[in-house]
Computed example of a mutant assay.
Amino acid sequence: MNTITTRTPGFREAAAFEWTKFSSLRSTRWTTAAVGLLTVAGAVFVGLSGSLQPDDTVLGGSLTLAVVALMIAGVAGALAVCGEYSSGTIGSTLAAVPRRGRVLTAKAALLAGVLFPLALVSCTVAYVLGDAILEDGAYAQGEPFPALLGIAALFAVVAVLGLAIGTLLRHSAGAVTAVIAVMLLPSLFGPLFGNLQRWIAGATPTAALEKLTQTSDASAEAVGSLGAWPSLALVTGYTLLLLLLAARSLHRRDV
C-alpha cells in the first residue's frame, strides 16, 4: 500500500509564489515603479525650477517628492494583499501554503526586499542629480550617508506597514485610504492637540523621512523632538506590532 505525503511548502517556495504574483500584477508593478520615478523626477524639477528654499539642504531639496513616493510605497504594500482579496485568489494562496504566518512573512520579506534597493538607488540618483543641477555652493549639502540607508529602510518599513493595514482591512479602497491617513492626518490635526503636537506628528513615517532628509521643514514643533534614527525605530516598532496583529487576524479568519 502506497502512502502519499504532502509536504508543506517552505519559506523559499512561499517567497517564490509571492514574487510570481507580485511581478504579474499591473497594480503592484506600476505603483512600485512610481516610487523610483517620482523621487528622481522631484530632484530634476526642484533643480530646474529654482524652488528650493535658501535654508534647505541639497539632500532635502533633491528628495522633495520622496514624501509622495513614500505614500505610494505604502499603497503598494496594501495592494500586494488586497489585490488577492479582490480577485479571490487569496483562497488559492492559503491552500497552497497552509501556514498563514509564513504567507504573510513571505509577503513582508518580498516587499522589503524590493523597496529597500529600489529606494536606495532612486534616492541616491535623485541626490546626485540635484547636486549636479543646483547652483554649486548655494545650499548646504546635508549628510547623505548614512541617511540614504535610513531613507531606503523607511520605504521598506512603510511598504510592510501598508501590507499589515491591507491584511487587516482586506479592501483596496479602505486600505489605501488608511495608509494615506496614517501618513498625513497626524501632521494635519497635530495642532489641535496643543503641546502633544510634536509627539503625534513626530510618530509618522513622513516625520521620520523629513528628519532623515534633513529638510528645513523638519522643525521640532512640526515633526517632534526625536532624532531621525529614533523616529525610524519608532515607525519600525509599531509597524511590526501591526504586522503581528495582521497575522493573528489572518489566522482567526476563514480566509
Results as ranks from 00 to 15, higher is better:
residue 205 P to G: 03
residue 150 G to I: 02
residue 25 L to Q: 14
residue 131 D to S: 14
residue 37 L to Q: 02
residue 213 T to N: 12
residue 51 S to D: 04
residue 19 W to Y: 08
residue 163 L to F: 01
residue 173 A to S: 13
residue 19 W to A: 10
residue 121 V to R: 08
residue 129 L to T: 09
residue 16 A to F: 06
residue 110 L to W: 08
residue 104 L to D: 05
residue 7 R to L: 01
residue 145 F to N: 01
residue 70 L to N: 06
residue 33 A to I: 03
residue 112 A to E: 00
residue 173 A to Q: 11
residue 194 G to Q: 13
residue 87 S to T: 12
residue 177 T to A: 15
residue 230 P to V: 02
residue 100 R to Q: 09
residue 88 G to E: 09
residue 237 G to A: 11
residue 192 L to I: 05
residue 124 T to D: 01
residue 62 S to T: 02
residue 105 T to S: 05
residue 141 Q to Y: 10
residue 202 G to D: 07
residue 183 M to E: 15
residue 178 A to L: 14
residue 147 A to F: 05
residue 162 G to A: 07
residue 169 L to N: 05
residue 191 P to I: 12
residue 7 R to F: 00
residue 20 T to K: 14
residue 75 V to K: 06
residue 101 G to W: 08
residue 99 R to I: 05
residue 116 F to T: 08
residue 207 A to V: 10
residue 58 V to G: 09
residue 55 D to H: 08
residue 97 V to E: 11
residue 59 L to H: 01
residue 6 T to Q: 05
residue 164 A to P: 07
residue 144 P to S: 04
residue 223 V to M: 09
residue 151 I to D: 06
residue 145 F to W: 14
residue 102 R to S: 00
residue 175 A to H: 14
residue 171 H to I: 01
residue 81 V to G: 01
residue 247 A to E: 12
residue 36 G to Y: 10
residue 240 L to R: 04
residue 154 L to A: 01
residue 181 A to M: 13
residue 192 L to K: 05
residue 218 A to R: 01
residue 196 L to Q: 13
residue 127 Y to V: 00
residue 221 E to R: 15
residue 130 G to W: 13
residue 229 W to R: 05
residue 99 R to Q: 11
residue 121 V to N: 04
